[in-house]
Amino acid sequence: MTATSAAAALAVDRARVATFSVFGFNGLLFASWSARLPAVAGIFHLSPGGLGLLLLMTGLGSVVGLPWRAVWRAGSAPQQPSGWPVHCSARRCSWWPSA
């Protein structure tokens, strides 16, 4: 194995671990948020249709809020350090205690 192929294999391994970590962490955040859905619906007095609309709008808002021009210009890697704190702070309400 040459040094170039060893470096490439290491880069692939790091990318695999990073991808697994990001998806795993996002799964934990989503699980905590979905466990709080009945409480959120109760706090805001949402009907099942209103709750469905809330979930639809959060998905659409995350797509609309993407920095498309910055990602096209620089790639997605520079966006990750700034994106995760925003993502985690937006999901912070999943850890709020029940009222």
Rank of each mutant, 00 (worst) to 15 (best):
M1F: 12
M1Y: 11
T2V: 08
T2Y: 10
A3Y: 15
T4W: 15
S5H: 13
A9I: 05
A9T: 03
L10P: 01
L10F: 08
A11N: 02
A11I: 07
V12P: 00
V12N: 00
D13W: 13
A15W: 10
R16T: 14
R16Y: 10
R16G: 10
V17R: 09
A18Q: 10
T19N: 11
F20Q: 12
F20I: 11
G24F: 01
G24Y: 01
F25C: 11
F25T: 15
G27A: 06
L28Y: 06
L29I: 14
S32D: 10
W33A: 14
S34W: 12
S34F: 15
R36L: 05
L37W: 05
L37V: 07
P38D: 00
V40W: 06
V40K: 02
A41K: 02
I43D: 02
H45V: 15
L46I: 15
L46P: 07
S47N: 04
G49P: 09
L51G: 03
G52P: 04
L54I: 08
L54S: 07
L54P: 03
L55W: 07
L55S: 01
M57T: 03
M57P: 04
M57V: 09
G59D: 08
G59L: 13
G59F: 14
L60V: 08
S62P: 11
V63T: 08
G65H: 04
L66N: 03
L66E: 08
W68N: 05
R69G: 02
R69I: 01
A70F: 02
V71K: 03
W72I: 06
W72Y: 05
R73E: 02
A74F: 03
A74C: 00
G75I: 06
S76A: 14
Q79L: 03
Q79P: 00
Q80Y: 09
P81M: 00
S82A: 09
G83E: 05
G83Y: 04
W84C: 01
P85E: 02
P85H: 01
P85V: 01
H87L: 14
C88V: 15
S89E: 09
A90N: 14
A90L: 14
C93F: 09
S94Y: 03
W95K: 08
